Every structure is written in structure tokens, then in C-alpha cells.
Computed example of a mutant assay.
Amino acid sequence: MPKLKIFVGTMYGGALDVAEQVQPLFEDAGYAVEIHDQPTLDDLVDSPTDLALFCVSTTGSGDIPGNLVPFVRDLEARSPGLNELRYGLIALGDSSYVDSYCGAGRALDETLQGQGATRLGERLEIDAMETFMADDAAVPWVEEWIASQQLKVA
């Protein structure tokens, strides 16, 4: 059974809630799912990761949430090269912060691609000004992502 790892960057739990809500969709598609809410780079590179999903909220002025900072720092410092990694990204933000809207997700996306990883499909950006419950946007996006990227294995 292929493995999907969901890496969460969150301050108040919104991104973790999204991860937990979409987990069954991937299990139904045939994946063994692991959620990493205190992720380390080793969680990504030390054991097989067939597919990754990053659920990342933005804090402050477009900053990476504190629980994801060590992961991102190690990713940038170690430059592990992620040419085999296929991933999706869900960024949570608030468009009233115009210049930093979804800044953490966008920055992580750029870093992952700089390491050679391949994003499958478009990044989902969820605006707290338009969507009160982020999973209301994430669940249909994941369903479509699984179908459009032909990720179903079961």
C-alpha cells in the first residue's frame, strides 16, 4: 500500500483540522496515511514517501507557523534534493493581509520546487475572509485532486 504523508503547519489548529478531514479521502483512494503535526525533515526523507500533502496556515506577516519552522530551516540548510517527491499543497490565509496572503504556503511551495519536488496540479489557497471552515474548501479540492491527478490506487 503506498504511503501519503500529510505535513501540517499551524498555529491555531485550522490546518491540522483540514489534514484530519481529508485523511479518509486518501485512505479510500488506497493510501496508508500519516499526519505529521510536528514535522521534521527526517519524516520526509528517511522513509518512503510516495506522495505528500502540505497543509499550511500563514501567521504574522506571511510567516511559516512555529511548528513548521524547523522543517523548513532543515530543508533549506540540508538541500536534500527532492527530485522524486510528488506533492500537493493547501495554503490557508486571510486576504485582508494583502501582501502576505497565503505567504507561508507560497514560500514553502517555492522551496519545495527549488529542491526539485514536483507539485501535482494547482496549489489550493483558502481565504478565511470567504470560507469560515477551511475543510469546506479542502475536501472538494482533494476529491478533485485525487481524480484529476489519477492518484487512486485502490
Results as ranks from 00 to 15, higher is better:
L44E: 12
G60D: 13
H36T: 01
L75V: 10
W145S: 08
G121V: 08
M129S: 11
E130Q: 14
L68R: 04
R86C: 03
G105K: 03
A128D: 14
Q113W: 00
D43W: 01
S61R: 12
N83L: 13
A137Q: 11
A134E: 05
S100G: 01
S95W: 03
S79G: 13
S96R: 09
D50M: 10
G62T: 04
V56E: 07
L25Y: 02
M11W: 00
E143M: 11
I90S: 08
L44F: 12
P140A: 09
G9W: 04
N67I: 08
V142A: 13
V45Q: 09
V72R: 08
G60T: 13
E20G: 02
P140C: 04
L108I: 09
A107V: 03
A147R: 13
R119M: 15
P39G: 09
D42G: 14
L82E: 06
E143P: 00
P80W: 10
A91S: 13
K3M: 12
W145A: 08
L4Q: 01
R119W: 00
E125V: 02
T131R: 01
S57K: 06
V72W: 07
N67Q: 06
I90C: 05
A52H: 11
E143Q: 15
P24Q: 12
L16T: 11
V56G: 05
G9K: 08
F71Q: 11
Y97S: 08
I90L: 14
A91I: 08
V8E: 09
G81R: 11
E34P: 00
R86I: 00
L53M: 11
G121R: 10
